[in-house]
Design a binder for these strands. Structure first.
Lengths: 251, 251
DNA sequence: CGCAGTCTTGAATTCTTTCAAGGTCAGTGG
DNA sequence: CCACTGACCTTGAAAGAATTCAAGACTGCG
């Protein structure tokens, strides 16, 4: 590879990663060419996953975290009596598999909702790399801390909020996450089913459906199947005021 | 300091730390004498906190994590409309302040429930130490991952469990955490008020009170003010079966 | 076209909360 | 020593929110 080719490759990587959570992790910290190159070296890019295909199952030996490049993923657990509990959704630029850091295996299962492509980062190598790249380790910690903070927000949501406040908060979360990645904050598609939304928010599917109808009556938004268009973001926000922020990225 | 004195000091530290979460972090990983010494060097031991005294407030600049040595702590947030949301309780041997890793400041507030003593670990130094101690960084990651996993469990609890299942799960969590530190699994004191329990579990205080009465009628346990004695751990467990584990340590 | 899965809508039921009142306990001061 | 106070906890009854049950509608697909 010539010097010029190498440079191009690095530039391409920067572009491909710039909408990614991992950008937080490395790019803004004045990574040198060689450092980006090192990170690139451990990235495994994979074939896209089809809807319903699993990235990993709870109990699988954990060896990597995954960054979503496109599509959407769902993390969930199966309770002993066979129920599913949705833990979160990952949109492009977000990470999944962080719970695998806790031990030898994943504690959650991750499934593609739509056709999705991901980058895999084997964390053994990520760990080694942390030793040589001064900022990377700190950023990993921050990312994990962020995950904890975001779970705390969700806890607050489920702990004391009404069904209405939960759904409003959920929609605002999606909105801001799409915006963060340069997509429209007021018009987007729900990658998940009503079933998944209800499960995630601790609500019956019928309640979710009724709330969408109610929000529509109130002229807060329009909803057509999966397509959401937020009409009155301000009023939606006022519904969750006091809810200390929205749901942010989740595992 | 003579060689012998130094050795004694290290042994004392090992003893004082062995019931601590940080033991997970260092001791079982064949830490050498010098390594324990290094860790000891960054530990700041503090005066005990009195009930109602704060370790840190949300918004404070975060620079350390804290390990509880005795007593009990409560983490919480205040929502914009002034409500409190309890995020978790820390018992001896557990850590608080991990959410501070997310950014420059803490996102939660931490208060002593009873007289409590803690070890403070400035994480700038912890971070530096990670570079020299091979196992420490990995253990930090694991600890953070554990925190995430534990939040996920709580999420599942609040998401779809009945009031009865929530309280049962809460009590079993306390039980197993006390047992882990070598205390009785079936007889312990609740360090927090009914108010705090209700808030944490997303229940009204009256509901908590009624459930204690109900559990007592069912001969599952006896409760006298703060004192709990679990009579039928097995049946209590069967109530939360399918709840995928209990609540574990929280921020 | 017709089937299967997903979503919506209505009515009855259940669980939990809210409101209200009373009880217990520890500390305080007469 | 005992009544008083305030914080915390318990208990009952009424009200409300969300779920469950049930039925029907829409969509995409073979």
């Amino acid at each position: 590879m010539t010097g010029k080719e190498k440079l191009l490759k690095i530039e391409a990587l920067k572009v491909s990663c710039q909408n990614c959570s991992l950008a937080d992790l490395c790019l803004p910290h004045s990574m040198e060419t060689d450092e980006v190159n090192q990170l690139d070296g451990i990235l495994k890019r994979q074939q896209p996953y089809q809807p319903g295909q699993h990235l990993f199952h709870a109990g699988d030996r954990s060896s990597s975290i995954f960054a979503v490049r496109s599509g959407a993923l769902k993390s969930y657990c199966i309770t002993e009596d066979g129920d599913e509990q949705v833990l979160g959704f990952a949109l492009p630029g977000e990470l999944v598999g962080l719970d695998g850091l806790a031990g030898e295996t994943f504690s959650s299962t991750c499934i593609a909702l739509g056709t999705s492509s991901v980058c895999e980062l084997p964390f053994i190598q990520l760990e080694e790399l942390c030793h040589s790249l001064p900022g990377l380790q700190k950023q990993m910690m921050r990312l994990l801390g962020k995950e904890i903070t975001s779970d705390q927000h969700l806890l607050m949501l489920l702990g004391q909020r009404s069904a209405e406040e939960r759904l409003a908060s959920f929609l605002l979360s999606l909105s801001s996450r799409y915006m963060l990645r340069g997509l429209s904050a007021n018009e987007f598609n729900l990658p998940m089913s009503r079933q998944d939304i209800g499960n995630y928010l601790g609500l019956a599917i019928e309640t979710v459906s009724r709330l969408f109808a109610h929000f529509q009556e109130e002229k807060l938004l329009t909803v057509n199947r999966k397509q959401i268009r937020i009409l009155d973001q301000a009023r939606l926000k006022s519904m969750v005021d006091g809810c200390l922020g929205n749901i942010s990225e989740s595992a």
